[in-house]
Amino acid sequence: MTETFEPKIVAFVCTYCTYAGADLAGTSRMKYASNVRMVRLPCTGRISPMFILKALQKGADGVLVSGCHPGDCHFAQGNYHARRRWTVFRSLLAFTGIPEERIKFSWISAAEGAKFAELINSITDEIRALGPFEQYQELQKVIETQSTY
């Protein structure tokens, strides 16, 4: 019997939109994949690219970054700044061979509980199909075996 691979996905979400959207999905009793671990932040503008690297370093197979739609930011412009950073960071990751399919970005408002549930299901399926991010995780294993001195 082979077990299906269950990916670990870390979601960095803004508290005003996507987190509230996830809350709505929950209170509406919508089912979505349990592979996602949410990290709530004040704004997408607070999401440092270091967070994404750290998530991968700690064994995530995929990362989701999500916040308010453009124009809806609680802090007026945080998501516009975030969008530029993602554009640049995403191309850098792709250039260094970290597949862009593993790093997802989305806008989900507080009213979009259904979109949240669907998105989590679809990206979980996609990343499950990609399999574990072994190339990166092997490097972490090297550290763990070396750091016992």
Partner: peptide, 16 residues
């Protein structure tokens, strides 16, 4: 500085 500014119509082809 490019990452300290933005335009409302910046491209966003990859955002779901």
């Amino acid at each position: 500085p490019v990452l300290a500014t933005f335009r409302q119509d910046d491209p966003e082809t990859f955002i779901l």
